[in-house]
Amino acid sequence: MSATDFEKEMEAEIKRRVEIIESDDYDFGVPFSKGNWCLVGTLFVISAILITIGTVLSH
């Protein structure tokens, strides 16, 4: 298969897949939930607390 054939095949495949994703019945799966965002916030706060403790201890 030549490079050009390969590129054409690639473009056709991308177009086919984008059309499937754009169709109304495509399932995007479970989105990032509010519970997930809470966990993100918790991890962020724990990290910030650790850094703050280190800053205080380094004095």
């Binding site: 991890l43 724990i46 990290s47 910030a48 650790l50 850094i51 403790i53 280190g54 201890l57 380094s58």
Partner: peptide, 27 residues
């Protein structure tokens, strides 16, 4: 660069802090 206690805070806190934000790129 650190005493043992601040080394723990720096490594665990420093690595996780921006990892929380950066991994949002996964969404």
């Amino acid at each position: 660069l650190n005493h043992f206690s601040t080394m723990i805070c720096s490594i665990l806190g420093g690595n996780m802090l921006f990892m929380c934000l950066m991994c949002l790129v996964m969404v």
